[in-house]
């Protein structure tokens, strides 16, 4: 590769100064990602091991020891993080070092285990299950904001969903297809609205602006999925149209915002969810015809519309880059 830079240097494309720098550079081998993965795995294994340990030894004397150990880990981790943390600001705060991120993660997860166990064994929050999930959620949100930890913010958002009685993690969203009940659809809709408002306020108030992505990511998926679910739930009543209208209104708002914040990810989500919505309307109309020709029309629609969207995406990508 050095001959390449000699060549560039000879062509006058690289100044003498830069060429010197390149010749001097040390090629260090970075094990950054390996060590980060190990830290993550270590936290994952340790916390799930401890979580199993207390419930398996529940009738023996040992579980008190395990409980004490979890409490010790939790307080130790938080004490370390409070000691090391840089002062709080509303901007992005760099973590003092890489391992402190994982210490905080270990502390938070063991805190969740501890609270869950207290409730299970001693009914610490009585029979008020709302409280048993509300407190961990609040602690997680506080931890995420105070120490500026994106991973814990995402855990807090997931716990917000748990508190409301639903789930936002992709696996659960896809597998628990419990969208056949009114309560669940409305709960998801409210959750989506809360998250999207959160994303909006984060940016508007300029308070931890880099947290916006997490709120918006979960918010967009949950809102669109619940609106589509609502449409299909009320499929045979006129009310269904209202859900579609709401979907297109939200899609338009997110479209504008994605352009403003230069995010092709959200642009893509709007296009794809919008496509699903429009397609379900088209399919519905063509099925009304009850004719064999409708099947051909349907296939032609999908071919034509997808080709159209390909050009749309290419065009949007160009405009986003240009703006």
């Amino acid at each position: 590769m050095d001959s390449l830079y000699e060549h560039l240097h000879a062509d006058g494309l690289i100044s003498d100064e830069s060429f010197e720098k390149i010749k001097q550079k040390q090629n260090l081998f970075s094990v950054h990602w390996e060590i980060k993965t190990l830290l993550y795995l270590g936290v994952l294994l340790l916390t799930s091991g401890l979580g199993l340990l207390i419930y398996e030894n529940i009738d023996t004397i040992g579980h008190k020891v395990v409980l004490a150990l979890i409490a010790l880990i939790c307080t130790g981790c938080f004490a370390y993080c409070f000691k090391m943390a840089l002062p709080f600001t509303t901007e992005k705060v760099k973590s003092p070092n890489t391992s402190s991120d994982y210490v905080l993660l270990l502390g938070s997860v063991s805190f969740l285990t501890f609270i869950g166990y207290l409730q299970y064994e001693y009914k610490a929050f009585g029979t008020n299950y709302n409280m048993a999930t509300l407190i961990p959620m609040l602690v997680l949100f506080f931890t995420a904001y105070y120490f500026d930890h994106l991973g814990i913010l995402n855990m807090a958002i997931a716990n917000l969903a748990v508190w409301m009685g639903v789930s936002v993690t992709p696996k659960a969203l896809l597998l628990n297809s419990g969208f056949d009940s009114k309560t669940i659809i409305y709960t998801y809709l409210v959750l989506g609205a809360i998250l999207l408002t959160g994303a909006y306020l984060t940016q508007r108030l300029n308070f931890k602006r880099h947290f916006k992505f997490s709120y918006q990511h979960y918010g967009v998926h949950v809102t669109f999925i619940s609106l589509l679910a609502g449409y299909f739930f009320y499929y045979n009543s006129a009310f269904a149209l209202l859900w579609m209208l709401a979907l297109f209104a939200i899609a338009f708002l997110i479209y504008l915002d994605a352009f403003k914040s230069h995010s092709f990810y959200f642009l893509l989500l709007v296009v794809l969810y919008g496509y699903v919505a429009i397609s379900s309307l088209v399919v519905r109309m063509l099925l009304l015809a009850q004719d064999e020709g409708a099947l051909y029309l349907l296939m032609l629609y999908f071919i034509g519309s997808a080709i159209g969207l390909i050009f749309l995406l290419i065009n949007l990508n160009k405009r986003l880059k240009a703006s």
């Binding site: 916390t47 799930s48 997860v109 969740l112 285990t113 991973g151 997931a158 748990v162 993690t169 990511h217």
Partner: peptide, 29 residues
């Protein structure tokens, strides 16, 4: 990506054994 993985794997804390789950009622804990 990292924060999303954290949420996926740690979102649900280790919880009581399965047969006891009903105690948590609608909370889906």
């Amino acid at each position: 990506v990292e924060s999303l993985i954290v949420a996926e794997t740690f979102a649900k804390v280790p919880s009581p054994p399965a047969e006891e789950r009903s105690r948590f009622g609608g909370g889906d804990f």
